[in-house]
């Protein structure tokens, strides 16, 4: 049995406000080291809340949450920030590169915060640039990149400090199908070769079909779970089936794109 990297036990998250909103309700979830997990569900099902909790930028109202064996509640703000910086990597839908930095500078940003020696940073950039084929665009700025290049840069930034866990929020949401496939293949390659755990929130059944396991949630509660098949095509079909069972909104089912 592999080590558990994320463990949620009966986690409930309630947003207090003018209208009280229960985003997650007694959800159990765990991810083992080296797993590639997708989280799917209709809008408002609590996917992003779940991801925020795992990101440790939000704390559960009830229940136990442990990331890499550490319970975020026991850490103060400072240690949490350091914990995120050293253990987690993030990839977002809106690509969120810092506009005023070049690709290279965006990549080293997390390292500079930890005062890594410059020689080390250069070595890691060289490694990554090869792996992600970023060599030609290192000195460009984010506004001079295509969507795929920008997302590859963002993945590079998430990988550069060799985190154990990568959290991705709709990483292919803004990409054309070719770039989306590149990004997904890249993620699964990282997952296979470096053994990095990846948890990805997505709407896209095709993206989900690249994963080892898909978790479906609805209204903040566990709905279903699918494990990868031999054949990606059949896995994809199964995902579609669950999605149609989930109902939700028609918009949540993106058009079928066969690989």
């Amino acid at each position: 049995m592999a080590r558990k990297i994320v463990e949620l036990t009966e986690v409930t998250k309630i947003y207090e406000g003018k209208v009280m909103h229960r985003a997650l309700n007694r959800l159990d979830f765990e991810a083992e080291a080296g797993e590639f997990v997708a989280i799917m569900g209709p809008s408002g099902s609590g996917k992003t809340t779940l991801l925020n909790l795992i990101s440790t930028i939000d704390l559960p109202t009830y229940g136990r949450l442990a990331v890499n064996g550490i319970e975020p509640e026991t850490l103060n703000q400072n240690d949490l920030a350091l914990f995120r910086r050293r253990n987690l990597g993030f990839v977002f839908q809106t690509i969120n590169l810092l506009q005023m930095l070049t690709v290279e500078e965006n990549l080293v940003l997390p390292l500079t915060l930890d005062r890594v020696p410059v020689a080390d940073m250069k070595r890691r950039i060289a490694d990554l640039a090869d792996k992600l084929s970023l060599n030609d665009i290192l000195s460009r700025r984010p506004d001079e990149l295509s969507g795929g290049q920008a997302q590859r840069t963002a993945i590079g930034r998430a990988l550069i400090h060799q985190p154990e866990l990568i959290l991705a929020d709709e990483p292919t949401g803004n990409l054309d199908s070719k770039s989306a496939r590149d990004v997904l293949e890249l993620l699964s390659k990282v997952n296979r070769t470096a053994g990095t755990t990846i948890i990805m929130v997505t709407h896209d059944p095709l993206a989900a079909s690249y994963c080892d396991r898909v978790l479906f949630i609805k209204d903040g509660e566990f709905f279903n779970e699918l494990y990868k098949d031999e054949q990606r095509r059949t896995f994809f079909q199964q995902i579609l089936n669950v999605l149609s069972l989930l109902g939700g909104n028609v918009n949540d089912l993106s058009s079928v794109r066969l690989p």
């Binding site: 930028i57 703000q77 949490l80 920030a81 995120r84 969120n96 506009q99 915060l113």
Partner: peptide, 19 residues
């Protein structure tokens, strides 16, 4: 607005209040 978005990214990346 732009700055806020930027600091949201940085916060996720793990920047302490002091930093």
């Amino acid at each position: 607005d732009r700055d806020r978005r930027q600091f949201a990214v940085l916060r996720r990346m793990g920047i302490t209040r002091k930093e």
